[in-house]
Design a protein around this nucleic acid. Structure first.
Length: 249
DNA sequence: GCCAACGTTGGC
DNA sequence: GCCAACGTTGGC
């Protein structure tokens, strides 16, 4: 399969999703969210995550999506930020995440920052996302990978319906309807970056920061390369935003 | 529970 | 299209 698109694991969603979008795209899907998107209640899991260690949870994220066409089981996984903007309400569900990267609950003992090096998993990160939090929309597996824009979480984790759809590339026969393995969240377009921040530029800073102790020194994009949904610290998020105002390095 | 084989991600 | 990194699977 191509890439992971979005995967999430949810399992907690209170209501069944009704969106049926086209199959997922890589990282994100773009299903119109209309009806189901308005339920923003957090699942029990999330709630407990927030209670247990909310102060340590990340509030900023980076989500990868593929802006160029690629077939996965016959389905095009392409989903660029322009595709997101074209959705009703500029909102889409981020489905297809099928990576547990974390097997623990986010809060079993430690919290994100300290556990990053050891635990990280896209699925659990998805479940940790909270309403209103912002994420960078990253274009991966393309000519010029990089951060294209900003999105925000408009619906917290709920079951990813694509896991039950046999012809969906993200079908998971081992997942039961009464105990879904995978979740998804809904994201809404916020704005484009003032300029496209390329992976190459981020990498230059990352490498410099490793020696200077700068804000990107532990950035997950480089230290956990295969995570399709990853947390950012506030320092990482703010530093990347500050790059918008500067000339590309 | 170890670890080799295999599959996937994603930059280049 | 190649291939490195790394997650997952399954034999033992």
């Amino acid at each position: 399969m191509p890439k992971p698109r979005k995967r999430l694991a949810g399992a907690a969603g209170p209501t069944g999703p009704d969106n049926k979008g086209p199959a997922g795209k890589r990282t994100k899907t773009k299903n119109p969210v209309g009806t189901s998107a308005t339920l923003g209640n957090s699942s029990p899991e999330k709630t407990s995550a927030s209670k247990n260690c909310g102060k340590n949870l990340s509030s900023y994220w980076l989500m990868k999506s593929e802006p160029e066409s690629r077939l996965e089981k016959g389905v095009d996984v392409k989903f660029s930020i322009e595709d997101l903007k074209a959705q009703p309400k500029q909102t889409a569900c981020w489905d297809g995440v099928r990576n547990y990267q974390f097997t623990n609950g986010l809060c079993s003992g430690q919290c994100l920052h300290t556990s990053l090096g050891v635990l990280a998993k896209a699925r659990n990160f998805l479940r940790a996302m909270q309403l209103g939090q912002e994420a960078f929309f990253y274009h991966s597996n393309c000519k010029e990978p990089g951060i294209a824009g900003l999105v925000k979480i408009v619906k917290e984790a709920y079951p990813d319906h694509t896991q039950f759809e046999k012809n969906n590339p993200h079908y998971d026969p081992s997942s039961k309807e009464d105990n879904p393995k995978w979740s998804m969240v809904d994201v809404q377009f916020v704005r484009m970056m003032k300029r496209y921040i390329t992976l190459a530029e981020l990498k230059t800073h990352y490498q410099a920061h490793k020696t200077t102790g700068g804000p990107l020194k532990n950035m997950a994009l480089f230290t956990r390369q295969r995570l399709s949904v990853q947390p950012l610290t506030r320092e990482e998020f703010d530093f990347i935003l500050s790059l918008e105002e500067k000339e590309p390095s």
